[in-house]
Design a protein around this nucleic acid. Structure first.
Length: 383
RNA sequence: GGGUCGGUGGCAGAGUGGUCAAAUGCACCAGACUGUAAAUCUGGCGACUUACGUCUACGGGGGUUCAAAUCCCUCCCGGCCCA
């Protein structure tokens, strides 16, 4: 069952669960300015260790005083460890990298240069980024990998989590973090499609937290995520896996469903107990011409699903690129700093057709507002 | 008026006797996208047909040939050169 809404204090403000973070992988949500992110009702974003260490590079990040300063963003940020990027690179093209016990060896997609991202280095980089929430380096595997391969990745993920936790404690000393200012530390559960491996991974990670001091005497992870891919070959949410994994996460830790998802997936996951999400869907789909739209009685349908488990579709998904919108003068709501404005479908359709980034940006902003509203409804429903 | 080069699918542009319903790009019509190597990728794109397939097509008309977008004749149209 869902977890009640709770507040998390960070150095850049208080977060209320459940919440959704758009991916600002390279320190920007592609094409959407920070004032438009805020206007959409979004207060947290995810940046990426892998991308930022390559560009602009940690030398620049340190000199400008961190990624908040670089972006001019005053709200909470989470950095992903880079594990997923290395996984993505390696599994799409084995020449681009390899996992070794020391860490993830990979070639930069920016300039082809070779790098070794270790658990310690990932934590150090994330500390330099200055984010409010950081994630341990993990070893994701495709769900199609062999049982033995995934089992080995689970054990490695646990060992790497232990190294990350020690590195975190060392950073805490060096940088003088306090219990109030320190970034939250998230572990990541692997195990893919195998329930016993997920359980083993979760228990292994919990043991690590109890065994290794984070520098503040905490005996738990601030958050625990579920990594890898949670979508089957048909594009459906792996509900059993997500439900089981949510149940493995102690209430002392925030439950973070990495990379999820569609509005429906998020609602389903919140019911299972997941509390935080990040995904490219609202922005990528927007960039590619899709808009999420509320169905009638969406709020009631969501509330009904949370209490009874009976799911009724609560939104529509429209492709504004299709010819039907060429002269469609109905309007699409887009958030602004002073409330809201509207654009006609016909205009957005035209902008998309002429490849003006404005069309993509309008839809991304619209979809971000949709996701923010969704999370607002969910917060109200899980009191 | 003479010469010359050329007219190919919505556009640009290959092809110069058979494997051509015609490369490729763009446009167009759809689809995909879930810790962003994604302003990316996939499919369709003459007509009819679920499909096998059938028909009509490379400016118009007429020939040669078993077979023509490709060769010949003629007409129409366009560029350039000469008068």
């Amino acid at each position: 069952m869902y977890r009640a809404s709770r507040k998390i204090k960070t150095a850049h403000g208080t977060i209320i669960t459940p919440f959704f973070m758009p991916d600002a992988t390279r320190a920007s949500v592609r094409g959407v300015a920070r004032e438009h992110i805020l206007a959409a009702g979004i207060s947290e974003m995810v940046v990426n260790t892998y991308h930022l260490m390559l560009q602009p590079g940690m030398d620049v990040i340190r000199r400008v005083g961190g990624v908040h300063a670089l972006m001019g963003w005053e709200r909470p940020l989470l950095s992903d460890s880079g594990g997923y990027q290395v996984y993505s690179l390696i599994h799409k093209n084995a020449r681009l990298g390899a996992i070794v016990e020391e860490g993830a060896r990979f070639r930069s997609v920016v300039d082809g240069s070779q790098h070794l991202l270790t658990p310690e280095k990932s934590i150090s980089i994330q500390a330099d980024l200055g984010v409010d929430m950081m994630v341990v380096l993990d070893d994701p595997r495709p769900n199609t990998a062999s049982y033995d391969d995934i089992a080995a990745a689970v054990e490695r993920t646990i060992r790497w989590a232990a190294r990350c936790r020690r590195a975190y404690a060392a950073q805490a000393r060096t940088r003088g973090w306090t219990q109030q200012t320190r970034p939250k530390l998230f572990a990541v559960i692997q195990g893919g499609p195998y329930a016993e491996l997920r359980a083993r991974c979760a228990q292994g990670l919990i043991d690590v937290a109890q065994r290794i001091d984070d520098g503040f005497g905490n005996m738990h992870w601030d958050g625990m995520g579920f990594g890898g891919r949670h979508i089957d070959a048909q594009g459906n949410l792996m509900e059993d896996a997500l439900a089981q994994t949510a149940s493995l996460i102690p209430k002392t830790s925030l439950a973070f469903a990495l990379g999820i998802g569609t509005p429906e997936d998020i609602v389903r996951c919140v019911r299972m107990g997941w509390e935080m999400f990040d995904c490219v869907i609202p922005t990528r789909e927007g960039r590619h011409g899709r808009a999420f739209l509320w169905a009638h009685d969406a709020r009631e349908r969501i509330a009904q699903f949370l209490t009874t488990g009976t799911y009724t579709p609560f939104y529509n998904y429209v492709n504004v690129r299709t010819a039907t919108h060429r002269t469609d003068m109905r309007t699409l709501r887009v958030p602004t700093q002073r409330g809201e404005t509207t654009y006609t479908y016909a205009y957005v359709h035209h902008l998309l057709k002429v490849n003006d980034p404005l069309g993509s940006a309008i839809l991304a902003r619209h979809n971000l507002a949709f996701y923010a509203q969704l999370m607002h409804m969910l917060r109200a429903a899980v009191v």
